[in-house]
Design a protein around this nucleic acid. Structure first.
Lengths: 106, 106
DNA sequence: AAAACATGCAACTAAAAGGTTGCATGTTTT
DNA sequence: AAAACATGCAACCTTTTAGTTGCATGTTTT
């Protein structure tokens, strides 16, 4: 079974912007992360929850506010899976090329 | 504006399995790609269309059948964007570490 | 202790996504 | 030319998603 969940989590403009913002490190609390997105705080909160469920992000409560922390491990896995797809594809192309060259031998 | 569409395209088990199958090169026509997924041909066709719209895949009609071709360029872009996120994050961590060391100097 | 702040939770709505069935159409095969 | 095949298109249904509003709760600040 393949892990589509991580891509699903990144596959929304609001969520992807949140992740980008976190990577840039400009902020970290739920409140700050939820602002300037053009949607309500509660709307943003639901998107953060999607990221939490997909393990892209962790929540660390500190007093009355909560820190949102990026989980780069998950991103790494997502990246490596794509790499693997590409590699398989390239190997197949290479095999195909070898075969064609064999055919053309004359 | 960030390109969430590519991740959205990969963010569904059926579509991700299709992409994996294509990368492995086991088949290529719409029909073959649509089989063994547990859904109807027309259902699968709609998922293929999502991949087409996101430019993850190209359709090449040949007579009565249509070849489905993976676009690795798009995958490469997706991979590199994640890499960029990680890099920014790592740099930020590094900066933070330097700062902490500066604070601790005594 | 009151006010301001950061957040959580629940009910609700509109739109999109994922899937189905039925039928039409062009292309090979026999 | 008929049959079999590969595919396309459209209507429809159900569930999920993305967002809203309203109110409750714990935590700082004044």
């Amino acid at each position: 079974m393949i892990e589509a969940q991580i891509y699903k989590a990144l596959g929304d403009p609001v969520r992807l912007e949140m992740v980008a913002k976190l990577a840039k490190g400009s902020s970290c609390t739920i409140g700050e992360l939820s602002s300037n997105l053009g949607i309500s705080r509660q709307g943003a909160r639901k998107q953060i929850q999607v990221l939490v469920s997909a393990n892209v992000v962790r929540l660390v409560p500190q007093g009355r506010e909560t820190q949102v922390v990026l989980n780069t491990e998950k991103l790494k896995v997502a990246k490596m899976f794509i790499s693997k797809l590409e590699t398989e594809w390239d190997q197949r192309l290479h095999a195909l090329k070898s075969f064609a060259e064999g055919q053309n031998r004359n």
